[in-house]
Design a protein around this nucleic acid. Structure first.
Lengths: 122, 122
DNA sequence: TCCATATATTCGTGTGTCCGAATATAGGAT
DNA sequence: ATCCTATATTCGGACACACGAATATATGGA
């Protein structure tokens, strides 16, 4: 299951509004949990749980960097299933809510620049 | 809601295995409920309920022909959302289960030719 | 009118899951 | 070792919904 998410799993994963926002927010570059829960304005356990769900299904992968944990979307082996994800991400991008999430993500990343340095530059 | 299904509604609709099979089965040509519940091997009330769900969301439309009721997929106004449906239909098409559904649908249509004549030819 | 067939709806039950709150674990710094 | 921060998990309750069974509605024909 971890390696090749089935279509049904992907659709169930995308059917939840919070997870859809997460998938829309995550691009090729990785984002850490604290940025996600800040951008989406959801409690940290909620963000963690949904990311855990997406990981279990095989849609994201994570990487530890010190205390932080970075998540990023996985490229799915089945191109037809990947196409569903792409279409959903594109459609979700039209939503003003997702646009706001992206803005807040940029702000969050700007504030907490990297796992190493906690303060903004200068 | 009826006119322009939102992305979230479409994803929730597709997240159910039975509805996904239905959407995969329904093409541009219309199919009546009896054929659907025969092809999918689900009880008639189940087929009716899910078709009702899809209609409420705005993904299908129906047409009465005597006792029969024919359903067909609707073209969605939002092209991005429509793309999600297309991708899901295409991905579902790879499933052997859906292939079997299609075969049974062809058989059913062959047996019950049209709303007017109940018996197969000759 | 009454009957037969196709479709729709209701009811009760079980299951899945989403959430908030609290707690647990992991890793780094001093 | 101890504390602090980031992340993960558990627990309980609430809610949505999918199903089987039974029943209701609608249409056509006698």
């Amino acid at each position: 299951m971890r390696a090749a998410p089935k279509l049904a799993d992907v659709l169930k994963a995308l059917a939840d509004p919070t997870r859809l926002r997460m998938v829309a927010l995550l691009g090729s570059e990785e984002v850490c949990v604290c940025h996600i829960h800040t951008a989406l304005r959801v409690p940290q356990p909620t963000a963690s749980r949904h990311l855990s769900y997406l990981k279990r299904v095989g849609m994201v992968e994570d990487r530890r960097v010190g205390l932080w944990k970075h998540y990023r979307l996985r490229r799915l082996p089945d191109p037809a299933v990947q196409a569903v994800v792409d279409a959903a991400r594109k459609a979700a991008g039209d939503s003003p809510g997702v646009a706001r999430d992206c803005c807040r993500l940029v702000d969050a990343v700007r504030l907490i620049r990297s796992p190493i340095q906690t303060a903004p530059m200068a």
